[in-house]
């Protein structure tokens, strides 16, 4: 646990304060104020990402600190998209997700700047990582949107609404992680000589991709007859993502070619 006393740290904590204020304002049913805080939080998160990019001189997607920072800045545009596309207000879920994402950024990960090693100097670096950032966020949101599918008290209309919102979100997330996986393969071929090395991070990513494969096939097989089962697979997918970002990234048990990430 460490507190950052730099401008970067200040921007991160400011974002966290705005996200918390959003939740508090929502709790007191001050929706306009909450929206204002939510947007201010986005501006702070965006400033944090931009400052990191300027400060380091490279796209801020090199390590977990930068990866999570970018994830937090993606949330506001996505919640606006949900409002526009699915007519759903996901501000509380997104702000909570933002706080969960920013906690390790603010208090656990180091912000020390590393100069890019030769392997990371590739035009595929940003699209590969960015599609995973966006994909993981979408899939995390899909899991949150599926929550009414677990409740016994949910009406059928609520279940259908949750299904449509989570399904549309998960399919975009799936598209993005597929792009990430394919770009990673192409980059692996250019950098390491092979498109697939059975590296622990690769195999966990494939496992995640396949879990969403289970979800889509199950969705087609059973329709909405077993909503809880469908939602369970979305949460297993999210569990795999969390494990990929934490245990697989940080444990020595899974050391491999992605070690600098």
């Amino acid at each position: 646990m460490m507190v950052k006393t730099t401008l970067q740290g200040g921007l991160i904590y400011l974002t966290m304060v705005f996200f918390t204020a959003t939740l508090v304002a929502f709790g007191f049913k001050r929706r306009t104020l909450a929206k204002g805080f939510w947007f201010a939080g986005f501006l702070a998160a965006l400033s944090s990402v931009i400052w990191r990019g300027i400060h380091t001189g490279h796209p801020p997607m090199q390590n977990l600190f930068e990866f999570f920072l970018c994830m937090a800045a993606f949330l506001w545009p996505l919640s606006q998209l949900s409002r526009w596309k699915n007519d759903m207000d996901t501000t509380v879920k997104d702000a909570t997700l933002g706080l969960i994402i920013l906690f390790p950024v603010g208090f656990v990960f180091s912000e020390a700047v590393r100069r890019l090693p030769p392997a990371l100097q590739s035009p595929l670096f940003v699209p590969h990582v960015a599609s995973y950032v966006a994909g993981y966020i979408m899939l995390a949101r899909a899991a949150l949107m599926s929550l009414p599918m677990f409740k016994r008290s949910s009406t059928k209309v609520e279940i259908v609404g949750a299904d449509i919102a989570s399904r549309q979100t998960v399919v975009v997330g799936f598209l993005l992680i597929t792009i990430g996986l394919v770009l990673g393969s192409l980059w692996g071929k250019l950098c390491w000589g092979h498109y697939w090395q059975w590296d622990p991070k690769e195999t966990w990513s494939l496992a995640t991709w396949l879990i969403y494969g289970v979800y889509f096939h199950l969705r087609m097989k059973t329709g909405l007859r077993k909503p809880r089962q469908l939602a369970t697979f979305l949460w297993i997918g999210l569990l795999f993502i969390v494990l990929t970002l934490t245990w697989i990234n940080l444990s020595r048990m899974f050391s491999g070619m992605h070690n600098y990430a």
Partner: peptide, 9 residues
């Protein structure tokens, strides 16, 4: 795929 992750590359 997860089992393979435990074996290493």
């Amino acid at each position: 795929s997860i089992v393979l992750a435990f074996f290493g590359s």
